[in-house]
Amino acid sequence: MQHHFFGVKNYNNKSNSVFFFFGGDKYGHDLFSRILYGARISLSVGLIGIVITFFLGLIIGGISGYVGGRTDNFIQRSIEIINAFPKLPLWLALGAVMPADWSPLKVYFGITIVLSMMGWTGLARVVRGKILALREEDYAVAARLLGASHGRIIFRHLIPGFTSHIIVALTLTVPGMILGETSLSFLGLGLRPPVVSWGVLLQDCMNMQVVANYPWLLLPVVFIIVTVLCFNFLGDGLRDAADPYSSR
């Protein structure tokens, strides 16, 4: 049994030494439990982030596709501008705006909002493209000729035609959010200790010596990879389940 699995001998003057499943960090914290706790933050950032992304993307993309013309042009150019910003420096800038004396909770919400502000553009484009295509389908024209209101056409005829695409786009956004939080926190601009997230945990691995001498501190990376893969598989699975026509 390697030595890092165990805590400090006779810690608290107890006779038994503590068993650390993934080893400990430099303060003698159990890495395993810190990873589990960190998962709360890292995963919920992604989930709350996509809720905001979902509303922004659906509404802005929907307006862009359904109204068309100048509005569409304006929204599309704005999306291009947002996408043209180098992501990392922008995160850094937005992260730096958050005052250092904010409570960890405020910082956490700040981070999610920053990430969603960057993340909605992809979904907006999917929504716009689909609405543009479906709007000219005969059944949408038929609904218009029946006298259906815009709301009815959008919610009854257009959106059900691409819910599967939305679900897939959203599930595929979650990993982006998780990675975003991780990168920000890793760089020290997102969440800060004592809050625990996978990104914060990785802050300890900033230099080569740590990596060389205490490789188990990199274990959160494994969790990040597995989580991201899981969401990708989930997205694929949902696409197949939600769209029975794709196989034909």
């Binding site: 389908e137 005969d138 059944y139 024209v141 038929a142 609904a143 005829h157 059900p160 035609g161 026509y245």
Partner: peptide, 10 residues
């Protein structure tokens, strides 16, 4: 409509 496939919402 012409196309009986695209004129009905699937």
């Amino acid at each position: 409509f012409q196309d009986p496939f695209s004129s009905l919402n699937p």
